[in-house]
Amino acid sequence: MAKIKLENVSFFYGKGTAYCKEALKNVNIEIKEGSITGLIGHTGSGKSTMLQLLNGLSTPGEGKVYLDGVDIWEKPKEIGKVRYRVGLVMQYPEYQLFEETVEKDIAFGPKNMGLSNEEISERIREAIDFVGLSPDVLQKNPFDLSGGQKRRVAIAGVIAMRPEVLVLDEPAAGLDPQGRDVILDGVFKYREKTGATIIIVSHSMEDMARLCDDIIVLSHGEVVLHGTRDEVFSESQMLERIGLAVPQITLLMHELSARGIKVNNGIYTESAAVEEIARLMKGTK
């Protein structure tokens, strides 16, 4: 069964004013339980708007959002429970840290859930491990950490709620390659260990190709493509038309096969490409 389902969802900014803008138009998607789904689209295509609908931070103008087959707005008073089940990490989450110590900040979510102290401290250790930080940062002041470390603390703050669905809005934006890898690996590990469903927004097609099972492409508030990674990245021309791209190395493979060299089109990493080309070279000898 679909973990999350959007049915005929539309969303408007400034409804009823002269500046009314339709940010999402009649979106219908289903997200499989336990999958990692990538959400791509150019700036202003409605990605962040869509994420905020998933945990009930905004209400759809039209249509319904289902979590495990239940309309999340069925009992508006219990929307808080939905927010614990669908953990959202917003863009640049490091700016939301506020506590004196990292430990207290990560504890904010679990405390709001009303968990016992033992449970909370266990979750903190677990969360900090997922994002690859050592336990000695727990007593530090979050404002003394580096940008990448702050980001990881903020993500740990959401992971500590053990959400069934983890939603991340550009978790790696503005980080160096190593910082990016640590965060994305942490997300992957979280899925492996808990079986959670992951939804992730990124502008890096390389990251998306490496990480995601399924990909949703948004353009001007509409879903233009939704399929497995291989299906979506085989539409390189379509993606380029709406201002996106396939990973560089995949593009190379597409170009090679367009010139009559028989390579596998579904290649997304440099190492796979090296193997593929080595295989071809051996064949020609």
Partner: peptide
């Protein structure tokens, strides 16, 4: 607005509770 949403996503509640609780909820 963004910070409020981020804290709401972590279960912060700005509308319920006593006056003191609501004032405390503003710290984050």
């Amino acid at each position: 607005d963004k910070i409020m949403n981020a804290q709401k996503a972590r279960g912060a509640d700005f509308t319920n509770g006593s006056l003191i609780q609501r004032a405390k909820a503003l710290i984050p």
